[in-house]
């Protein structure tokens, strides 16, 4: 369970309507109204991406009146389904999905089994992408694909579908770059 203590807040008079913040929000919590950014507080996971890209310093972090808890009990879904989807994704159920929130892959699958169909919905269900927003991005996509979810088309530069894994490297590339331990690292994963 992840406790979100903060949220992003727009200073309307400082916002120039550049829209940069809209596309960096991992939960798509930001929209534009009358050329000003508006943040849906219920979707904000306080990752600070919007604040980080705002050249006008028009977004600040504020403490929530009441912290919001996000997370999912993986035991509340069919464990065989978790294993099946994880196997298809070549991910161990207890492998890290998100380091910032210490969320494991099995919780991501549980979110999918409970209805999440996009990376943003997964983030809102599990609390992932509330930290660095980086490492967990492709793990979420891999799990969604393994569950047979059709990913939505790309929204500007919000998130691109590039989920290459060790398992996708063509044989000729493996042979050409034999000093990169591709087969050996696969063995490590297999043991794992």
């Amino acid at each position: 369970m992840v406790q979100i203590n903060y949220r992003a807040e727009v200073i309307p008079e400082a916002c120039t309507g550049c829209v940069d913040c809209v596309f960096v929000c991992p939960t798509l919590a930001i929209t534009m109204e009358n050329r000003k950014a508006v943040i849906d507080e219920s979707k904000c996971v306080a990752c600070q991406n919007c604040q980080g890209v705002c050249d006008d310093d028009a977004i600040v972090k504020v403490e929530r009146a009441e912290p919001v808890e996000r997370g999912i009990d993986y035991k509340s879904v069919d464990q065989d389904r978790i294993l099946e989807i994880c196997k298809r994704a070549n991910i161990h159920p207890s492998q890290w999905l998100c380091l910032c929130t210490a969320t494991r892959a099995r919780e991501g699958v549980a979110a999918i089994l409970k209805g999440a169909t996009t990376p943003e919905e997964m983030a809102l269900a599990t609390g992932t992408r509330s930290g660095c927003t980086v490492y967990c991005a492709m793990m979420s996509m891999r799990l969604l694909k393994a569950a047979g979810v059709n990913l939505p088309p790309n929204f500007k530069w919000h998130l691109f579908d590039t989920t290459q894994t060790l398992w996708d490297v063509p044989k000729d590339v493996i042979e050409k770059y034999s000093d990169y331990f591709l087969e050996e690292d696969k063995d490590v994963f297999r043991k794992f």
């Binding site: 980086v134 989920t163 060790l166 331990f181």
Partner: peptide, 18 residues
């Protein structure tokens, strides 16, 4: 970030350097 995620999470510690 997509490619940083691929590098760190989708490959092993040696193979990721490919």
């Amino acid at each position: 970030f997509e490619t940083r995620s691929v590098h760190h999470m989708n490959f092993g510690p040696r193979s990721s350097n490919l």
